[in-house]
């Protein structure tokens, strides 16, 4: 029975090809630093999963955001765990992605033929920071509010277009319900979609070129 189902699926999916192309790839000798890319991916998936669960109770409105988070922390079974993982995962992801970037820099992995991998990667880093920035406002507590006031104010100092940037970020002149909604939208839809897409490109490029080898004396 299982064999039959497997055969049917295999005929259509082609597990063999998948295995050859995805798993059975040759690689140069690596070391533990090579694990940081997949660690970043792991954290991205964890953030995605816990983030989706948080939206079950979280309510993105100035009247309810704070109370709904309090409820997640104190009223819902394991809410503290889900939010705790998401909270610490955010910091950890920034850290790990940054170290991953440094390692590919120091091992000169960004040079031919992996230039585009680096370019996409650097965009991933910026998007990760964007996730941190937009997520920070969502609890709508004192810390979140004031940090966002100041950070968006920084955008406002650019000569000429500062006022425009500030209003575009805040959705108006003040940090308000509109700011919260657009940060929420960016945090759960736009930035993750961009991240997921670019991670796909990043991974494709890695499979195409293979993991780089650590440079020798004569490289």
């Amino acid at each position: 029975m299982f064999k039959k189902i497997y055969a049917w699926l295999d005929e259509r999916v082609g597990f063999d090809g998948l295995y050859k192309n995805l798993l059975d790839r040759p690689e140069p000798h690596g070391n533990w630093w090579n694990t940081l890319g997949s660690a970043s991916l792991f954290l991205f998936i964890m953030q995605g999963a816990t983030g989706i669960f948080l939206t079950v109770y979280y309510t993105p409105s100035p009247d309810h955001a704070y109370d709904s988070i309090q409820y997640i922390m104190n009223g819902v079974a394991f809410g503290w765990l889900i939010r705790g993982i998401h909270h610490w995962g955010a910091s950890l992801m920034v850290l790990i992605v940054f170290i991953h970037m440094l390692r590919t820099f120091f091992s000169a992995s960004y040079k031919y033929p992996r230039e585009l991998t680096w370019i996409v990667g650097s965009l991933l880093f910026l998007l990760t920071l964007g996730m941190g920035f937009t997520g920070y406002l969502l609890p709508f507590n004192q810390r979140a509010y004031w940090a966002t006031v100041v950070a968006t104010e920084i955008g406002g100092v650019v000569p000429g277009i500062g006022d425009f940037i500030l209003k575009a970020l805040r959705g108006g002149t003040d940090v308000s319900a509109l700011t919260l909604s657009r940060f929420f939208s960016a945090h759960i839809w736009m930035l993750p979609a961009a991240l997921a897409g670019l991670i796909g490109v990043h991974l494709y490029l890695i499979m195409r070129h293979g993991e780089s080898a650590y440079p020798d004396q004569d490289d």
């Binding site: 995805l22 059975d24 790839r25 040759p26 690689e27 140069p28 000798h29 993991e211």
Partner: peptide
């Protein structure tokens, strides 16, 4: 060359 002396992803 490096791949020859290398390892497997899985």
């Amino acid at each position: 060359e490096k791949l020859q002396k290398g390892e497997r992803f899985w």
